[in-house]
Every structure is written in C-alpha cells, then in structure tokens.
Design a protein around this nucleic acid. Structure first.
Lengths: 251, 251
DNA sequence: ATCTATTTGTACGTATGTATT
DNA sequence: AAATACATACGTACAAATAGA
C-alpha cells in the first residue's frame, strides 16, 4: 500500500461527503456543512472544498445556494440531469435509430401491460384528450412534425404513469427524449411515405381501451404490434443519433 | 431576458468546452487547452477553470494528467462510471428486485434473439466453459453464493457480446450489477428453497444451443421462460435495493 | 426600503508535487 | 541530474446574493 492511488483531494472529500449522506441517512433538502466548516473539519483549503462540491453538483447529488442559511443541500437527481448524464455516456458510441426501437419494442409492451387497470380516470381523460392533436391528417409539414412530437409525448405520459418501476420509466423516457431531439433537429420522419400520425393514433386509442378494461395481454400485444410497425419503417433510417450534449438545465 | 439565469461561471466554462468538443469534433485522447490558456482565453481565474474541469471530470467527459504534456484530455466515459452515475439517480428512489426483473424479462430475450447466429466460435467456447462453475450442486453456502455470481456473470457476458446495441448492453449490465451487489452485500437468494445454479445452468445451456443454431425464436423463448421462472421466485423478495453509492473508480 | 450578517462565488498570488525531456 | 511544464493545493481578499432585522 505504499504507492497507493494518487487520488486527488477533491474526490476524497466528495467520497467522504457521500459516506455522510449514506451513514447519516440524509434526505433531499438536508444541508451539508458550510465551506468554512468543511475546511476546518477536513483540514483542506477553500479551493479544494469548492472543487468537491462542484463534483457532487455535477453528479446531481447536491445543489448550492448563496446567502444566509445557504450552502450545499442534498438533492434528488432530476430526470433531466439523469438523461443528460446518460447521453454523455453514449456520446462517443454510435447509437442508431434501430437500437432505440429495439429497446422500445422490448419495454413498452411490458409497460402498458403493467399499466392495465391501474390508471385513474383522471389520467385516462388526459391521455384520451392528447390524441386529438393527431387524429386528423396534417395539412403542412410543420404541423406534421408537431403531431409526431405529440405522439411521442403520448408514450412519455404512459411512462410517467408507471410509478411502480421508476427505472423502467427512466429508460423509456430516455429513448423518447432521443427521438424527440431527433425530430426537432434532424427532421426525422421525413420524407413521410407513411402516415405516422394516423396509424399511431389508431394504435394509441386501442391501447387506451385495453388499459381501461384492465386487459394487460391485449395492451401488451397491441403495443408490440405498434412498435413492430414503427420499427419496420425505422429500419430504413440508418441515421446515427446526433452527436451533441444536452444543455445543463438550471433546475 | 433581463433577469436571466444567474448561471455560475464554472458551468459556463464547462458548457463552452463541451461546445468545443462537439464543434471541433474532438475525439477521446485529444487534449484541451492548459489551465493557463483557458484562464487567458476565457478571462477567468485559475479557481474557476479548475472547478469547471472537475465538473467535466465528474461527468466522465475528461480526465486530467499532471506533468509536462499533461492537462485535460477528452475521454469516453467508462461503463463503470455510467453505472455509478445512474445509481446516483436511483439513490432516493425505491427500486425493488421486482423492478429489476421486470426489465430483465423484457430485455434479455430480445438480446439473445439478436445474438442468435452472431457469436463467433471463440466466444461460444468461453460461454460454454463458464457453465462448468455451476453445473453441479454447491456443497456449502459460500460456493453457492459464488455460483449465483457466476450465473449472473454469464448474463453479463451475453450483454457484452451484443456489440450491436450498446444502449441495450448498458441497461442489462446495469441490472446485473445491481443484482451482483445485492448478492455480495445482502446475501440475496438465501434461504434457497430453489436451486438457482442447477436450473439456471440448464436454461443457459439451452440458450447457448439455440444461439449456436442461429435459432433466434427459440433463444428468445427459452430466455423468457428463464426470466419468468426467476421472476416468480423473486416476487417474494420484497427487498428494496440497498442504498449506497458506488465508489469512484480510478480508471 | 435599507442595512447587516451570513454564506457562496470569483480572483489572484504562491508554493508544492509530478512526470517528461 | 537538472530543468521544464504542467496540475494540485493553500491562503487571502473581495464581490455577489440572500435572508432577516
């Protein structure tokens, strides 16, 4: 143990604080010691303390506020931050549209099956209303694009309702985020030889019916068909996922 | 836009550097400007530059080396880092064993189906050999535990082979990592009323056969049965996933 | 509304450690 | 072995934000 890891101080400090969070069972909102206190108890300089809090902040574990009563506070990582960090992981890897659809094909049927019979009336209404946006054919390509986004948003709403499995929700959210970004920036889905809005709407309506009836199997099967359908069209899309970082959000 | 975001300088700098990476198409290994250069061109102090570097490092985008020719270098985020960041996201969320298995049930059949007929002989041999570890019943509980870990590792090996879809690989890797940690720390799978090693081995062997034959459908079905089987046992495991952070690795 | 106290945020100077040449 | 080039760490001073009197 002589020539040990030359681990930098800021990371030692960050690890120490993570241990505190675990051991003392700190909850989101709990305050960490002030910079001055940390400097004192850990015997490090101000700069080092600040670098460690930046690390924890970047990892989504804390947020900092200025002023009296300010400081670093434990925080539950936001969905957006998690999505952003995962796209950093994929930045140098080539993810294709096909890859995204392979995952959607596997997960979304499972999702709606677990949703069947477990959606409150209020949410059912919201879901049904969202379909209006793309029941009718689009007139221009701009509203067409908007319809695609709304259709994607429908899947997002479904994912959000699966409070039961938050990891599942997150993964689906991520895939949809990728497709949404593509639709916005790259004008995916064009040229349209296939009416996504119309066909999608029919599938979505049938899925909602099955969910409302509590028919998990039907919901599963219809969603699987829907995804297979989309996948077939998408297989011609060889486009690689855009290389870019998601902006750091202020939330 | 008057009272705009009071975004902190280190984050502005980090964003700027991210833009450089995108615009100049920097690759892993490429060097960023030195601290002194950054101070000069961005007109910020040393402390600010260092804080931004820590942020990028924490997000897995760069690594830093000391000495001449040292500095900050673009880096492809390691798998371990990505797993670690995602578990930060889930830290305050309650993920159960059931949740993990719901995802495995959906994804792993899809995985082996895409693997069918696409595994080179060399890898097939490695896979087959790994089965030896748990073909025979364990004598003591310690080797039993090791068998479970080896069986999980088998699934990990499968995931690694799916070079085609790296997002899929990552997600599966993550679920297996969670279960591995649980087996190590929490002594999951005990008491054993069901012989995981034996049953698992039979499934694994059959899956390998199907993969070798290029029979995607069989591979899919067998894996699905395997997962359903495991899920049934696991549904009694109400254990929540351990709260803890993965250690920052030096790699 | 103004002041004041608290706490983070930024800048700058200096010294030390580390690896390459 | 020595000089060089770079990150790492420390300390201080001051600016900015915010809550409370």
């Amino acid at each position: 143990m002589s020539k040990n890891t030359p681990q930098r101080r800021p990371y030692q400090v960050a690890e120490t604080i993570k241990c505190w969070i675990v051991d003392r069972q700190l909850k989101p909102g709990d305050r960490l010691p002030s910079e001055a206190e940390l400097m004192d108890t850990l015997q490090v300089s101000k700069g080092t303390v600040r670098e460690s809090t930046r690390v924890l902040e970047a990892q989504g574990l804390v947020e900092t506020r200025t002023g009296p009563g300010g400081g670093a506070f434990v925080r539950e990582m936001s969905d957006a931050k998690a999505v952003s960090l995962l796209s950093n992981y994929l930045f140098f890897k080539d993810i294709s549209i096909k890859d995204i659809y392979q995952i959607r094909l596997a997960l979304e049927p499972e999702l709606v099956a677990s949703l069947a019979g477990n959606v409150v009336a209020d949410d059912m209404i919201r879901l049904r209303e969202s379909l209006h946006s793309y029941t009718n054919p689009a007139e221009d390509s701009e509203t067409e694009r908007q319809q695609h986004l709304d259709a994607l948003h429908f899947h997002l709403m479904l994912a959000e309702l699966a409070g039961g499995n938050q990891l599942l929700t997150f993964i689906i959210r991520f895939t949809i985020q990728v497709l949404t970004d593509l639709t916005i920036y790259n004008r995916l889905y064009e040229p349209v030889t296939y009416d996504f809005g119309q066909v999608g709407c029919r599938y979505h309506a049938k899925i909602l019916d099955a969910i409302e009836l509590g028919d998990a199997e039907s919901a599963y099967n219809i969603m699987r068909e829907h995804m297979l359908d989309a996948q077939r069209v998408m297989n011609h899309q060889e486009a690689q996922v855009r290389r870019g970082f998601l902006p750091e959000l202020k939330t």
